[in-house]
Amino acid sequence: MPRESYQEKLNALREDVLYMSELVLDRVRQGLESLQQRDEQLAQEIIDGDDEINQLYLDLEQRCVDLLALQQPVASDLRFIAASFKIITDLERIGDLATNLGEYTLDAGRERYPEVDIQAIGNAVVTMVEDAMGAYADKEIDACFDIAERDDEVDDQCSNASDAVVRDLIEREVDAGADESEIERLMADVSRLLLTIRDLERIGDHAVNIAARTLYMVENDDELIY
């Protein structure tokens, strides 16, 4: 009976880590929507909801610690608990990045760079995290390597988008007739957009981290950990 209770705790941990990922991804999607729609109310809800994610992270962290300290897990279970501990850390940080999207919405000026497709980049990284969590749930090794490869594509998208913003700033936006307040507004918009691109790229990096920990959990393979 004690061993069955222990296994139930492991199963419950897995389910709650997956629940946390769903909650976090929903916040990222809302963040992207708030940016696209300039929805300040939604943006504020995302910011206010960060405490819920933080508390869930702390609760799951404590459960991981308790399982490690009190249950003396065998090797495969030990890797699962350790991987889950690392994955919830990545999820909490993705939640922070979703909060950033809400804050960028509140600070946004007019959209100056419609050729930069923030939504496409956002959809790509959301899908990466979804697939990484699917690999964690189903112990899919091939998916872990696929996610790592897709991250290179996202990095290229982000680099190209950042280059487009800076190039546009240099070539078209700043002229001798611009007054100081207009230049300040321009620089604020440029900074916000570059930070948005950076944060989306970081979400992709966290997806790779999740895939790397899943690979280690299933195969005891640290190839993707860096």
Results as ranks from 00 to 15, higher is better:
159 S>P: 02
100 N>E: 14
55 Q>Y: 06
206 H>D: 10
122 G>W: 03
39 D>C: 02
34 S>K: 05
102 G>M: 05
213 R>M: 13
29 R>D: 14
4 E>D: 13
126 V>Q: 11
66 D>W: 00
192 R>I: 10
125 V>Y: 06
121 I>E: 05
183 I>S: 10
177 G>S: 15
90 D>N: 12
183 I>P: 11
198 R>W: 07
97 L>K: 12
193 L>R: 13
195 L>H: 11
160 N>D: 13
94 I>D: 10
17 V>F: 04
41 Q>H: 07
207 A>Y: 10
3 R>P: 11
70 L>D: 00
212 A>Q: 02
68 L>W: 00
94 I>K: 10
2 P>E: 15
117 D>G: 01
121 I>V: 13
107 D>N: 13
71 Q>R: 01
224 L>E: 03
112 R>Q: 10
153 E>C: 09
201 E>D: 14
58 L>Y: 06
109 G>N: 06
95 G>Y: 01
120 A>F: 07
220 N>W: 02
13 L>D: 02
61 E>R: 08
5 S>F: 14
66 D>V: 00
216 Y>P: 08
190 V>C: 08
18 L>E: 15
124 A>T: 12
69 A>W: 00
18 L>Q: 13
180 E>R: 10
223 E>T: 15
184 E>R: 15
147 I>L: 11
75 A>Y: 01
135 A>F: 02
152 D>V: 12
84 S>A: 15
111 E>S: 13
25 L>A: 07
217 M>N: 05
200 L>H: 05
54 N>V: 13
195 L>Q: 08
61 E>G: 03
211 A>T: 02
83 A>G: 09
124 A>L: 06
51 D>W: 07
142 D>M: 08
99 T>N: 11
219 E>Q: 07
184 E>L: 15
178 A>D: 11
158 C>G: 08
68 L>N: 01
128 M>C: 04
68 L>M: 09
7 Q>H: 14
39 D>L: 03
26 D>F: 09
117 D>K: 11
175 D>P: 04
112 R>D: 10
25 L>T: 09
177 G>M: 08
217 M>P: 04
174 V>H: 08
20 M>P: 07
225 I>T: 05
225 I>R: 10
162 S>H: 07
87 I>P: 11
28 V>Y: 12
139 K>H: 00
154 V>E: 06
84 S>V: 08
61 E>Y: 02
23 L>P: 04
173 E>F: 11
132 A>M: 06
116 V>P: 00
69 A>V: 01
79 R>N: 06
35 L>C: 11
173 E>K: 14
21 S>M: 08
2 P>S: 14
91 L>Q: 04
116 V>R: 01
127 T>S: 12
73 P>Y: 02
47 I>Q: 06
60 L>I: 01
189 D>V: 05
15 E>Q: 15
128 M>L: 10
54 N>I: 12
206 H>P: 09
144 C>N: 04
184 E>K: 14
113 Y>Q: 03
25 L>P: 10
67 L>E: 01
35 L>W: 11
92 E>R: 04
100 N>C: 08
218 V>Y: 00
